[in-house]
Each structure stands twice: as structure tokens, then as C-alpha cells.
């Protein structure tokens, strides 16, 4: 049995059980319908703070749909209907008192395809702070932009090109620019929807390194197709299949001793 498995090495420091960390996001009975299609069935999931949680599963399994529930991006799709309860720090994100704008300032998102705005590198990062009024002076804004670019590991590469268009950067740089843009508003949670699927291996390695640094300050939830990536970057893993959450737990457990037959089949490459 063991020889059919993906070989995974999990650093000793990451092996702490989830119970050690406070729970940041709680999902209970989350269902999503796209028109007639029932895309997500009764998902219950706890996501610990300051850790990377990976959502894995075959295409169309609902992992991206679940991710988009967490910052209510499904609101922008007219036919989508989300039911159930999702809490961040104990507050319901569907609470009518809570504005979706405030929610998204706390829950940032990075997309599958790098999507920098057709503006300069500087303006891309300054976009969030400007719309949320986070900087009172030009100096403060400069500081936010530079520190966000630094934390995204991009500053050294673009410091002489801050005025050039963000769309002129390479794919990997664009994706790190999008990460810088997301962290510029100091969110608590960062959602990443297959952030490396459009990138080459070297750019991917940089983003993964970055995630490892960012988890000191942020709660990161990543959807990925690559099981190796999930094993490398995450502390917890949740496996989705056909719109249901099959199993979740510490990454090491999921990849070595999964409880469910379907999880085992998926991580050993029998389908997916």
C-alpha cells in the first residue's frame, strides 16, 4: 500500500495538530446552487488561523466554489445561490449588518490567472488602500506600496519600474504583484484560487516560498490541482469530491493515512 503513495516530507515544525491554532473561519452546512446545478453539498469545515489550508480534489469538485463563498465572490454571479453559515472570527459573513465591501477588505483573493489592472505597478498596489482610504498622505501610501511589494518578494525586481504598466511584467511577477495588491489592504485571510496553474516551475517555487512566509501573518486558503503543491505548502488539507467535503485533517495525515477510500484513490493518482 505505502509504495503507491505520493512521497511527502512534512517539516517537523509544521506537524502541530490543528487544535493548537485558533479557528479563523468556520463553515457549517454550506450549500451552493448555480441555477439548477447543486454545486456544493453541506460543507462543514474549520480553518485555523496563521496556517495554509489546501483544498484539493478533481476538476468540478466544488473546491473553487467553496473558496469563492468565503469572500462572497459568488454574489457577482447572478444565478449563484449560497445557503448555510460561514463565520470569520465568530461573525457571520452573510450578516446584513456586514457590508460585502468590508468583508472583502478582510478577505483578499488571488486568482488563477494573474489579473493586474492595466495601470502602473505602483497604482496596482495602491488600488486597495486608495478605495478603502487607508493612507492619509502620499508618504503613507508610498510606505504601504513599498512594504506590500517587499512582503510579496517583488520589490527588488520592480523598484525601478514602479511607474511601468503592471501588465508588462512576466507571469510570475504579475502573480506576485496580485499578491502584493491583496496584502496592501492588510487582510486577515487570503484566498488563492490555483495561483500557480499559469506559471512555470521557477515562478511557482517563488510563490510557494512566499506563501510559507506569509502564513506567519495571514490565514491562507489555497485551491490547488497539484497534490505535491498541497503537500509542500499546507499544514491542513481538505479533499473535495463531487461537491462534497470528503475528508480534512493535517496535511501529513491526509497524505499518509487517509481515512476515506476516495481520498486514497485520489492522492495515489487513481482518478483526478
Amino acid at each position: 500500500m505505502m509504495n503507491t503513495m505520493v512521497h511527502v516530507e512534512v517539516p517537523a515544525a509544521d506537524r502541530g495538530p490543528a487544535a493548537d491554532r485558533a479557528i479563523k473561519v468556520v463553515a457549517r452546512g454550506v450549500n451552493v446552487h448555480y441555477g439548477e446545478k447543486h454545486a456544493l453539498h453541506d460543507v462543514d469545515l474549520d480553518i485555523p488561523e496563521r496556517a495554509v489550508t489546501a483544498l484539493i480534489g478533481p476538476s468540478g469538485c466544488g473546491k473553487s466554489t467553496f473558496l469563492r463563498c468565503l469572500n462572497r465572490m459568488n454574489d457577482t454571479i447572478p444565478v449563484a445561490r449560497v445557503t448555510g453559515r460561514i463565520e470569520i472570527d465568530g461573525h457571520d459573513i452573510h450578516d446584513p449588518e456586514l457590508d460585502v465591501v468590508q468583508l472583502r477588505a478582510r478577505v483578499g483573493m488571488v486568482f488563477q490567472k494573474p489579473n493586474p489592472f492595466p495601470k502602473s505597478v505602483y497604482e496596482n498596489v495602491a488600488y486597495g488602500p486608495r478605495i478603502h482610504g487607508l493612507a492619509r498622505t502620499k508618504g503613507e501610501l508610498d510606505e504601504i506600496v513599498v512594504s506590500s511589494l517587499r512582503r510579496a518578494g517583488l520589490y527588488e525586481e520592480v523598484k525601478d519600474r514602479l511607474a511601468d504598466s503592471g501588465t508588462g511584467l512576466s507571469g510570475g511577477q504579475q502573480q506576485r504583484l496580485c499578491i502584493a495588491r491583496a496584502i496592501a489592504v492588510s487582510p486577515e485571510v487570503i484566498l488563492m484560487d490555483e495561483p500557480c496553474s499559469a506559471l512555470d516551475p521557477i515562478a511557482t517555487a517563488k510563490i510557494e516560498e512566499l506563501m510559507d512566509e506569509l502564513r506567519e501573518n495571514f490565514t491562507i486558503i489555497i485551491v490547488t490541482h497539484s497534490m505535491q503543491q498541497a503537500a509542500r505548502v499546507s499544514q491542513r488539507t481538505a479533499f473535495f469530491h463531487l461537491g462534497s467535503l470528503v475528508e480534512e485533517g493535517p496535511t501529513e495525515t491526509i497524505f499518509t493515512t487517509p481515512k476515506d477510500r476516495r481520498t486514497l484513490d485520489y492522492i495515489t493518482g487513481r482518478f483526478g
Partner: peptide, 21 residues
């Protein structure tokens, strides 16, 4: 659409997205 998504995900409103993106 990815640009709209990017802007909305930053917490921008519709009119901010229209005006700035």
C-alpha cells in the same frame, strides 16, 4: 471578467470598479 473579479475581490464597489478599472 478577471479584471472585474480582481477589483471586486479588493472590496471595490461597482462604481469604483467602473471608474478605476
Amino acid at each position: 471578467q478577471s479584471l472585474r473579479d480582481g477589483s471586486y475581490a479588493m472590496g471595490a464597489t461597482r462604481s469604483e470598479t467602473v471608474k478605476k478599472v
